[in-house]
């Protein structure tokens, strides 16, 4: 079973058209990976579907890096009782 980090990298790669192996935790979605604002909305939707969680829009869009996304999603899974 893939880890949360692997699943976040897979989704990110799919939306942004990047090889997941090239995505590092310290990468900023906007600056390093070139995510447009529209793609950040797609990322939120896909993370919610992938993990079965609900994200707060303001909180989710405040996340800047891949590592922060992994932490945020892991915390939400814990809070919302979703096993990962």
């Amino acid at each position: 079973m893939a880890t949360a980090a692997e699943r976040v990298r897979a989704i990110t790669g799919r939306i942004l058209g990047i090889d997941p192996a090239d995505i590092k935790p310290e990468h900023s979605f906007a600056v390093d990976l070139g995510a447009e604002s529209i793609q950040s909305v797609e990322l939120v939707a896909m993370f919610e579907q992938e993990f079965g969680i609900e994200m707060d829009e303001d909180e989710a869009l405040a996340v800047e890096t891949v590592g922060e996304a992994i932490e945020y999603i892991t915390r939400l899974c814990r809070e919302q009782g979703v096993e990962i």
Binding site: S37, I38, V41, E42, V44, A45, M55, D56, E57, D58, L61
Partner: peptide, 30 residues
């Protein structure tokens, strides 16, 4: 935000539409 397709006949309030699909978007504060 359209991508050339005709959009659905019902688009709820506060929708952020991407590629004809309703998303949460940037939230109501935005």
């Amino acid at each position: 935000m359209a991508t050339g397709k005709v959009l659905p006949k019902f688009i709820p309030s506060f929708s952020c539409l991407l590629d004809g699909l309703v998303t949460k978007g940037f939230g109501k504060n935005s």
